[in-house]
Nucleic acid binder design. Sequence first.
DNA 1: AGGCCGTACTG
DNA 2: CAGTAC
DNA 3: GCCT
Length: 696
Amino acid sequence: MPPSTPSPSPSTPQRSSIPSTPSTLVSPRYPAPDLSSLPTVFILAAKLASDRRDALAKWLVEHRAPVTYDVHKARIVLANVERFARARLELRGLGLWTEKAEAEGEVSGVVKSVGGVKEERGTSPRKRMRVGEGAVRSGKAGREGKRRRVNEDLENDLEAASPRPPASTVTAGSDGETTASDNSISPKPPPNIKVIKLHWLNQVMATSALLPYTPYLIYEARPVSRPSTPTPAIPSTTPSTPIPSSPAPQPGLAILQRAREDALPVKTSTFAPHGSRRFHTFHPTKHTPKLPARVTTEYEGEDTDIPPAPAWVRDKLLFSCQRRTPPNPPNAEFIAQLGKIKHARLLTDDEIGVRAYSTCIAAIAAYEYPLRHPAEILRLPGCDTKIANLWIEWRNTGRVAEADAADSDPDLQIVNTFYNIWGVGATTARDFFYRRGWRDLDDIVEEGWSSLPRVQQIGLKYYDEFLDGIPRAEVEAIAETIRAAAVRVRDPGIEILVVGGYRRGKEYSGDVDVIVSHRELAMTHNLVVDVVGALEDEGWVTHTLLLSLAASERGQATLPFKARVPGGRRTGFDTLDKALLVWQDSVWEGMEEGGKKAKNPNPHRRVDIIVSPWRTVGCAVLGWSGGTTFQRDIRRYANKVRGWKFDSSGIRDRRTGEVVALEGERGVRGGIGDAERAVFEGLGLFYREPWERCTG
DNA sequence: AGGCCGTACTG
DNA sequence: CAGTAC
DNA sequence: GCCT
């Protein structure tokens, strides 16, 4: 029995707002140093509270220093960072690509930490890893056998739950992107820029004396055109510098946040004539000014920092059903990271967090280019600074700390094991662990079996088998068996369509979803029961997890919602009848041999049979073919845009309750595919192929 | 400052 | 009603 | 977490 104090809930999201620093700003009452002789100064917003940055800038201005908000005009960059690599990264984030210039003046001792700078402020990630706790687990004598078995289970889970990209080696963002220079305009090479620790300014303010930069110099930056063509072969092109990529994953914090802030004060010069457009492209302004965008595209490939926004991005199409989302998007690896975080939100009962991550995942999955710049994320609907920062982290370090933490959290792994039991959701899974103290499946079996609801017992019994993917051929065979049974209990007018992941093209499906219909209304009435009965008799169905008949019965009893339908028309729109089944192929090698019951070795499968009246079969197919985000967005879209209530059994007007018969009163004349197209069209949506609905 | 899909079954 | 499923 |  585990300790009665299983450890508190894991990984609270913890917003990473930067603690606004207690501003050490001492406004000088002295006449102070006259800084008018300084070269143009730019304050890098990195790791700096915006108000503090403002205060510093204000102080500089008061002392007549030339301050700019355009990094391209700067000769001096003040940076609240310690290391060369980081500083260069931040500049790059602003569209300024630089390299270390080993010349021009003081090459003095390389970058070395200035003595007094111990413990910069504002740098306390405080990861709140859970510690201890884990050690307790390993003990537990006497359960060796099961422990091993369950470990296997666990691994299976993780495999199935989140198809993880192979560790992947996204090299640190040091290496090139594309595009060459656009500073062909300027004949003479731009002057070098001194990147100096912000501490310099602190000292200047404290001492009221203009101090030399040299002790604070991070590096002398020579602007360069962006490297063209990644030269993908070389993994780490980071020039010499013995600095290891970055030991502590403490990646680009609020770069975007800062970018936004940058954008504001600069408003005077949004169209300022200075040459570089890059700075503009970085502006996360909500709607990109059309003119510059056009101009950029006309510059034709070479110096466009980021690809032009696809139409759905430009038009801010919020709903994933308004765009195509292919199965293997170019940014799948990053999406997988977001998926881990989303899954952790799921396990912690954070429905809203799940929604948020689902939305941004769907958006990025629809984005047709490999991401190269955070600004590309910022312009996607459902994505903002949080996501963009995660991407920056991913790009720079090849990891996403939050995702790794979620993935490896031992408590969450246990909860996940339970969550994978069919019929067990996040709440119960967490209850099993945190309240009952169970830590593996055998704990449940031994201590709680008899108290489990029937479906959870079934889910437990076939735990591994349900987690196995079902190959397409087997899906097809099962569907055909269902069709044959339906024909047998009705007539050859039966039409079926396999929906779900299979229809989206997946090689392996988690379950089998089959829509069964018939053009004659009477034929679909009570069809589920008859079909399931037949399949049971034939030995295909071993368990019925759930049977939903709301349709047939309630449909004729009373008309839900809008009680009064004048006269003749009996709307009787059955909500869908459906059956959630456990399936097992009833024929196997050697079944007739010997005694009689050798055991059926075939795996158990989850099979859903959905019966739809022809009238609404398009809705049924649409409602059952999309990824979950696609489905939710269909409903949201129907609601917000048309004022309708969509579900897979039909569409109603929210105000009047009237049925909206997009497929006609008696269904379409063509086939099931035509019915679905009719629904798309009626909703005002372009048709999306099933494999373009892979929103996750 | 409130919303985030809509519905049905089990216990 | 809460929980789960699709 | 993002949007209205």
